[in-house]
Design a protein around this nucleic acid. Structure first.
Lengths: 336, 336
DNA sequence: CTGTTAGCGCTTTCAT
DNA sequence: ATGAAAGCGCTAACAG
């Protein structure tokens, strides 16, 4: 069996309490030579702290849980980096659990695991929690925050981009480039997609463009959803530009367009929402409405650390990054 | 404060021991009606098990730790899926921790965290552990296995592809397609890269081709490394095909080739090692030496669960997936 | 500065 | 089938 503080106490000729104090670095509560003797004994015995015992008595964990959607969104890493960078100096360990976005049972297991561990806080990374699981989460005292997507339920704390503005500003950018017939592809019917759709419609209306139903092709932000949307637009698309719900979806749109014999951006402009490194490695590079994922992670940790009286919804910055996939539309038959 | 089994015991009119037995489902150690009463009381009080207490007394955790390289390799998800799928039925919770590949301090913290929690096993996902941290890991009784990359140190358990075969079979494939002057790009000088290089050289030699030093461009498997390698080959490359150390590196090679005015695969064939979904979404799609990442995850969990007497090194299957980026070389000036 | 004491919440003999 | 009691390894008053 592993060595305990009792063993160290015996070896160093002090009491367990003193060992505890030295090992926990309770400055000023032990003498210098005692410390040396204790630490030496600990080293010799290959002592490892027993976190379970500590947490049991202190009723406090040093862990921050991140629950991630299993359908790995490729921006999760950026958020996690932000989380780590902020948690580390605050002496918090970050533990990550995968949950299925669709799999309610896996969600429940992940939640139960971290709740029973009494973690310091829970960050939910683009996971759509089933109602029962949301209730479970709320039934605890553990602070939590959704990141990247928010829940329909009111008062659910979340840090996201302002998704209405995402739709609005991206569409505005395309309008400025001279597009009028603009498609919106692969955003869902949940709150995130709804807001983006609303912003998109508003931007069109303000420009005097009447949105056409067929310009909107809902989907689940995936590569396949992008492909399907483009398939629906067809080889002679009514739109001259497509705004896609994610980088992957945008790539799906581009590739499908190519399959249909269309050149991007010459025949069709494509704009992505997210702006991860994928935008830089595809050809042509993808112009994007870029989200501040790293900042979401930072803000998420800050919020859990802060007292919970802050407003529940918070947004992080967005901005357009121009790359190669958007140019002015060429004159169309109908425009001549 | 949260309810404990004592509170439930009082509410249900039984002893804490009985509550414990019911809640832990120790079949046959409690009566049917008692169980009902206990469970009802637990529900009413919103009882949550205290994992710290349980682990303290049972000296056993239900957690499996996965330590992941922070430089997020895009195949990590596949491995993690395999881990989850295997751990779940074995009643193990998977917790994931990010460590820096280069950052020794972050590695140490991640390791310490899981060691002090006395997790059931540790899976190291393509992380290159600093020597001191490897020693730390070995000093515990916790079973561990490296996944995807192995350590130089002998007797370090690892589940990887057979990297010599990776280099050998990929090169053989390119030779079969008619290439002779074949580049190897963006593999490192560690054990993984060395083995691939050795396999690559062997395949060339067997085909009667004398490897030229400049055909080998070492790197760190990254996109940038791929770009740099291609930059080194130049606009009139001596090679007709390049085998890249990862999917990202292969994309770096392709894009840089395009920048240099070369068409892939018409002017230059490119083959990737890994075979993740990236290969399918780039244009042209990337022919790859595909690794069985999901299986690595499965095998990793199996090994931790099994007794530790199995041979320390284990390999998973590899195979070539033909896509569009490799064709026969065109006749060269020098060939005419 | 250090030792003594009393648990944290749970499981697990050992009785009954 | 159930209860009493002991204790997992640690921390935190409280004395001194």
């Amino acid at each position: 069996m592993a060595a305990t503080i009792k063993d160290i106490a015996k070896a160093a000729g002090v009491s367990p309490a003193t060992v505890s104090r030295v090992l926990a670095n309770k400055e000023g509560f032990f003498g210098a030579q005692t410390a040396v003797r204790v630490r030496e004994a600990a080293r010799q015995l290959g002592y490892r702290k027993n976190t379970a015992a500590t947490e049991l008595v202190t009723q406090r964990s040093h862990d921050l849980a991140v629950i991630v959607n299993a359908t790995q969104t490729n921006f999760a890493n950026q958020i996690i980096e932000g989380i780590q960078a902020t948690a580390f100096p605050a002496d918090l360990n970050v533990i990550i659990l995968y949950a299925g976005d669709a799999d309610e049972e896996r969600q429940r297991r992940a939640l139960t695991t971290v709740i029973e561990r009494a973690v310091r806080g829970i960050l939910l990374l683009s996971v759509n929690l089933a109602p029962a699981n949301l209730a479970l989460l709320r039934s605890t005292e553990i602070p939590y925050t959704f990141l990247s997507i928010s829940m329909q339920a009111p008062q659910t704390p979340a840090i996201t981009s302002d998704d209405w503005q995402v739709g609005y500003q991206a569409t505005q950018y395309l309008l400025q480039r001279g597009h009028q017939r603009i498609g919106l592809a692969a955003v869902d019917h949940q709150i995130t997609g709804q807001l983006r759709l609303a912003g998109y419609r508003q931007a069109l209306m303000e420009a005097g463009v009447r949105p056409v139903a067929a310009w909107f092709q809902a989907g689940d932000y995936s590569y396949a959803a992008g492909q399907q949307a483009m398939q629906a637009y067809g080889a002679q698309p009514a739109v001259t530009a497509v705004l896609a719900g994610s980088d992957m979806a945008a790539i799906g749109v581009m590739n499908q367009a190519r399959t249909l014999g269309l050149l991007v951006p010459a025949d069709l402009s494509v704009m992505a929402i997210d702006g991860t490194e994928l935008c830089d490695i595809v050809q042509p590079t993808l112009t994007s409405l870029t989200q501040s994922f790293y900042d979401m992670g930072v803000a998420g940790v800050r919020r859990l650390l802060a007292d919970q009286s802050t407003p529940p919804r918070e947004t992080t910055a967005i901005h357009v990054v121009e790359r190669e996939s958007v140019i002015a539309p060429r004159a169309h038959r109908s425009d001549i």
